[in-house]
Amino acid sequence: MSTAVDPIERYSRQVRFPMLGEAGQRKLMASRVTICGCGALGTVLANHLVRAGVGNIRIVDRDFIETHNLQRQILFDEQDVADNLPKAEAAARKLRLINSQVNIEAVVTDIDHTNILDLVADADLILDGTDNFETRYLINDAAVKLNKPWVFGGVIGSEGQSMTIRPGITPCIRCVVQDNPPPGMTPTCETAGVLGPAVSVVASFEAVEAIKILSGAYDALNTELFVIDIWDWTFRRLKIKNLLGKVDCPCCQQKKFEWLEGDLGSHTTTLCGRNAVQIATRRSEKLNFAEMATRLNSLADVRHNAFMLRFAAEGHEFTVFPDGRAIIKGTNDISKARTLYAQFVGN
């Protein structure tokens, strides 16, 4: 290893960009970000920020990698699928190879009202790599309560949206999207498909907003709802700035944090369009996978590593995480999934 090389040297090409400069770069290197969700948007976000030298990055994701993710989730490969790695862990491994100067923390968990504050409390910025509005409302409540900026991004098909939220300065997500749209109004990536380039465009807009916020370039931030369709080449900036204070927002105006308090939302949920149910539990003691594998050894194909245990039973594929949470594929029926969980995993 060479010595006495200024760690900033590797960023010389972006330091030369005058709006960032060396002072901006040093701020990025001293920053801390939480990326919520590490799927399509999250992998692109994490890739940009780690390469740009944002100093401390926490990546939170509840899911494992499947082959159909590889079309757009840029940090993963076929070996990660074969190794049964959770997304957050696989992303962290790849990112550490990309930039060893960045402190990367992988957290494999379902973001909910019990853990969101801990996950974002020390962050300068929260980034949205999620695929659902329940989690976004939770991020929004936490961000407004703790007065932290966050950047929303959503993508479906060839369409995407993004918005930068600074509590008290811009409208929050509940000012703009007042209610969680029901199925049928917002198709999911599983039903409507999604193009990798659409993800990259939206996540790249989020990433550049992140670089502006962390380097202090607040005047350059997006203050509108950005809406793009990369297929039919439309690009709109919808004016929403004046909604601040105009809408009697439960979150940023009334300071009622209904999602954070757990009044709204559930975490045992069907994973829309995937024919799968997530069973949410949180145990104080970690599951002993070796013991479970022995108990389940009459079943087909029981495999486990440090991050998950997987087996097949009664035509369903079970993926169990150390905290007891499980994803059961092959059903959309929550009560059936609970029964299967009780039967094979335990209570």
Partner: peptide, 8 residues
């Protein structure tokens, strides 16, 4: 009419 885009 512009619904929110939820995926990601």
């Amino acid at each position: 009419i512009i619904p929110a885009v939820a995926g990601g």
